[in-house]
Simulated scan of single mutants.
Amino acid sequence: SKSAAAQARQRLGSEPLKWLFDHSARHWSGQDRRAYLFKGLQLFAMDGTTLRTHDNVENRSHFGAQLYASGALASYPQVRGVTLTALPTHIVHSAAFGPYGTNEMLYAKQLIADVPNESLTVFDRGFLSAEILCALTQHGTDRHFIIPAKSNTRWELIEGDENDCIVRMRVSPQARAKCP
Protein backbone atom coordinates (compact mmCIF):
# COMPACT_ATOMS: atom_id res chain seq x y z
CA SER A 1 0.00 0.00 0.00
CA LYS A 2 1.15 3.55 -0.71
CA SER A 3 2.20 5.90 2.06
CA ALA A 4 0.00 8.84 2.97
CA ALA A 5 2.57 11.20 1.40
CA ALA A 6 2.58 9.22 -1.86
CA GLN A 7 -1.23 9.19 -1.92
CA ALA A 8 -1.38 12.96 -1.29
CA ARG A 9 1.23 13.62 -4.00
CA GLN A 10 -0.75 11.46 -6.43
CA ARG A 11 -3.98 13.32 -5.61
CA LEU A 12 -2.53 16.87 -5.52
CA GLY A 13 0.40 16.62 -7.91
CA SER A 14 3.79 18.19 -7.28
CA GLU A 15 2.71 21.86 -7.17
CA PRO A 16 2.11 22.21 -3.38
CA LEU A 17 5.53 20.71 -2.55
CA LYS A 18 7.20 22.80 -5.26
CA TRP A 19 5.56 25.97 -3.89
CA LEU A 20 6.69 25.10 -0.34
CA PHE A 21 10.28 24.49 -1.47
CA ASP A 22 10.45 27.66 -3.59
CA HIS A 23 8.89 29.85 -0.92
CA SER A 24 11.05 28.46 1.91
CA ALA A 25 14.29 28.48 -0.08
CA ARG A 26 13.92 32.09 -1.19
CA HIS A 27 12.96 33.22 2.31
CA TRP A 28 15.81 31.36 4.04
CA SER A 29 18.47 32.35 1.51
CA GLY A 30 17.32 35.98 1.60
CA GLN A 31 16.82 36.52 5.34
CA ASP A 32 20.50 37.23 6.11
CA ARG A 33 21.38 38.54 2.67
CA ARG A 34 22.70 41.93 3.83
CA ALA A 35 25.03 40.34 6.40
CA TYR A 36 26.90 38.41 3.70
CA LEU A 37 27.32 40.91 0.87
CA PHE A 38 30.66 41.00 -0.94
CA LYS A 39 31.29 44.46 -2.40
CA GLY A 40 27.52 44.95 -2.48
CA LEU A 41 26.84 41.64 -4.25
CA GLN A 42 25.12 38.47 -3.06
CA LEU A 43 27.28 35.38 -3.59
CA PHE A 44 25.95 32.21 -5.21
CA ALA A 45 27.26 29.01 -6.74
CA MET A 46 25.69 26.89 -9.47
CA ASP A 47 26.72 23.27 -9.70
CA GLY A 48 25.34 19.91 -10.72
CA THR A 49 24.79 16.82 -8.66
CA THR A 50 23.53 13.27 -8.91
CA LEU A 51 21.35 11.68 -6.24
CA ARG A 52 20.20 8.12 -5.78
CA THR A 53 16.51 7.58 -5.21
CA HIS A 54 14.32 4.74 -3.98
CA ASP A 55 14.59 1.70 -6.25
CA ASN A 56 11.23 0.92 -7.74
CA VAL A 57 9.82 0.47 -11.23
CA GLU A 58 8.27 3.95 -11.33
CA ASN A 59 11.54 5.73 -10.38
CA ARG A 60 13.65 3.60 -12.75
CA SER A 61 11.23 4.35 -15.56
CA HIS A 62 11.14 8.11 -14.90
CA PHE A 63 14.69 8.93 -13.75
CA GLY A 64 16.77 6.14 -15.28
CA ALA A 65 20.26 5.33 -14.05
CA GLN A 66 23.89 5.55 -15.09
CA LEU A 67 25.09 3.00 -17.62
CA TYR A 68 28.73 2.15 -16.87
CA ALA A 69 31.35 1.56 -19.58
CA SER A 70 31.27 -2.13 -18.67
CA GLY A 71 27.60 -2.23 -19.69
CA ALA A 72 26.34 -2.58 -16.12
CA LEU A 73 23.46 -0.40 -14.97
CA ALA A 74 23.69 1.50 -11.65
CA SER A 75 22.12 -0.25 -8.66
CA TYR A 76 19.67 2.58 -7.94
CA PRO A 77 17.70 5.03 -10.07
CA GLN A 78 19.52 8.36 -10.22
CA VAL A 79 18.29 11.93 -10.31
CA ARG A 80 20.35 14.58 -12.11
CA GLY A 81 20.07 18.07 -10.73
CA VAL A 82 21.56 21.54 -10.55
CA THR A 83 21.33 23.88 -7.59
CA LEU A 84 21.75 27.61 -7.12
CA THR A 85 23.17 27.89 -3.60
CA ALA A 86 23.91 30.92 -1.41
CA LEU A 87 27.66 30.60 -0.79
CA PRO A 88 27.91 32.13 2.71
CA THR A 89 25.18 29.93 4.22
CA HIS A 90 25.07 26.95 1.82
CA ILE A 91 21.30 27.30 1.67
CA VAL A 92 19.81 26.15 -1.62
CA HIS A 93 18.09 29.10 -3.29
CA SER A 94 16.71 27.18 -6.29
CA ALA A 95 16.96 23.71 -7.77
CA ALA A 96 16.08 21.99 -11.03
CA PHE A 97 16.21 18.24 -11.36
CA GLY A 98 14.85 15.31 -13.31
CA PRO A 99 15.92 12.27 -15.32
CA TYR A 100 19.56 11.22 -15.11
CA GLY A 101 19.89 11.19 -18.91
CA THR A 102 19.22 14.96 -19.17
CA ASN A 103 22.33 17.13 -19.46
CA GLU A 104 23.05 19.41 -16.48
CA MET A 105 23.18 22.40 -18.84
CA LEU A 106 19.45 22.09 -19.48
CA TYR A 107 18.72 22.21 -15.75
CA ALA A 108 21.13 25.15 -15.34
CA LYS A 109 19.25 27.11 -18.02
CA GLN A 110 16.07 26.73 -15.96
CA LEU A 111 17.76 28.38 -12.95
CA ILE A 112 19.22 31.46 -14.66
CA ALA A 113 16.01 33.45 -14.15
CA ASP A 114 16.26 32.71 -10.39
CA VAL A 115 19.68 34.36 -9.99
CA PRO A 116 19.04 37.56 -8.03
CA ASN A 117 20.08 41.01 -9.22
CA GLU A 118 23.23 42.49 -7.65
CA SER A 119 24.91 39.09 -7.44
CA LEU A 120 28.08 37.19 -8.29
CA THR A 121 27.60 33.56 -9.26
CA VAL A 122 30.43 31.03 -9.26
CA PHE A 123 29.93 28.39 -11.94
CA ASP A 124 31.58 25.01 -12.27
CA ARG A 125 33.80 24.86 -15.39
CA GLY A 126 31.29 22.49 -16.97
CA PHE A 127 28.85 25.39 -17.39
CA LEU A 128 31.09 27.34 -19.77
CA SER A 129 28.29 28.08 -22.23
CA ALA A 130 27.63 31.32 -24.06
CA GLU A 131 23.89 30.67 -23.90
CA ILE A 132 23.90 30.34 -20.10
CA LEU A 133 26.36 33.13 -19.33
CA CYS A 134 24.82 35.60 -21.80
CA ALA A 135 21.36 34.90 -20.39
CA LEU A 136 22.69 35.61 -16.90
CA THR A 137 24.23 38.97 -17.79
CA GLN A 138 21.62 40.19 -20.30
CA HIS A 139 18.61 39.75 -18.02
CA GLY A 140 18.28 41.41 -14.65
CA THR A 141 20.72 44.02 -13.37
CA ASP A 142 24.25 43.81 -12.06
CA ARG A 143 24.46 40.00 -12.37
CA HIS A 144 28.07 38.83 -12.65
CA PHE A 145 29.79 35.46 -12.89
CA ILE A 146 33.13 33.83 -12.33
CA ILE A 147 34.10 30.53 -13.91
CA PRO A 148 37.34 28.53 -14.02
CA ALA A 149 38.77 28.13 -17.50
CA LYS A 150 39.08 24.75 -19.14
CA SER A 151 42.57 23.87 -20.35
CA ASN A 152 41.52 24.24 -24.01
CA THR A 153 39.60 27.52 -23.58
CA ARG A 154 40.82 30.43 -25.72
CA TRP A 155 40.30 34.11 -24.94
CA GLU A 156 41.62 37.62 -25.36
CA LEU A 157 43.07 39.18 -22.21
CA ILE A 158 41.36 42.50 -21.45
CA GLU A 159 42.71 43.23 -17.96
CA GLY A 160 44.81 41.50 -15.30
CA ASP A 161 47.28 38.64 -15.64
CA GLU A 162 47.12 34.91 -16.35
CA ASN A 163 46.10 34.08 -12.76
CA ASP A 164 43.27 36.57 -12.38
CA CYS A 165 41.86 38.43 -15.34
CA ILE A 166 38.93 39.74 -17.28
CA VAL A 167 38.74 38.21 -20.73
CA ARG A 168 36.79 38.45 -23.97
CA MET A 169 35.81 35.18 -25.57
CA ARG A 170 34.72 34.41 -29.09
CA VAL A 171 31.26 33.00 -29.41
CA SER A 172 30.48 30.43 -32.09
CA PRO A 173 27.92 31.23 -34.79
CA GLN A 174 25.70 28.45 -33.38
CA ALA A 175 25.78 30.02 -29.90
CA ARG A 176 25.11 33.49 -31.37
CA ALA A 177 22.06 32.12 -33.17
CA LYS A 178 20.71 30.81 -29.84
CA CYS A 179 21.58 33.99 -27.94
CA PRO A 180 22.08 37.01 -30.23
Rank of each mutant, 00 (worst) to 15 (best):
S1M: 15
K2D: 11
K2I: 05
A4T: 15
A4R: 15
Q7P: 02
R9C: 03
R11W: 02
K18R: 09
W19N: 12
L20G: 06
F21L: 10
D22M: 12
R26M: 07
R26P: 00
G30S: 14
Q31D: 06
Q31Y: 11
R33C: 09
F38W: 06
K39P: 00
K39Q: 13
L41W: 04
Q42D: 03
L43V: 02
F44D: 00
M46G: 01
M46F: 01
D47Y: 04
D47L: 03
T49N: 08
L51R: 10
R52T: 15
H54N: 07
V57E: 12
E58F: 01
N59A: 11
N59L: 02
N59P: 02
R60S: 09
F63T: 01
G64Y: 06
L67H: 07
L73S: 04
A74G: 00
P77C: 02
Q78N: 00
V82D: 11
V82R: 07
L84E: 04
T85V: 15
A86N: 09
H90N: 09
I91A: 02
P99I: 03
Y100V: 07
G101F: 13
T102C: 13
A113G: 03
P116V: 06
E118S: 11
L120S: 10
V122R: 01
V122Y: 10
F123Q: 00
R125A: 08
G126P: 08
L128F: 14
L128I: 13
A130C: 14
E131S: 13
I132S: 12
L133C: 11
L136V: 02
L136F: 03
L136A: 05
G140S: 09
G140C: 12
G140Q: 10
G140P: 10
I146T: 15
P148W: 02
K150A: 07
T153E: 08
I158R: 14
I158L: 14
E159I: 08
G160F: 09
D161E: 14
E162G: 12
D164W: 01
R168V: 04
M169A: 05
M169K: 01
M169F: 12
R170N: 13
A177W: 13
K178S: 14
K178T: 12
P180Y: 08
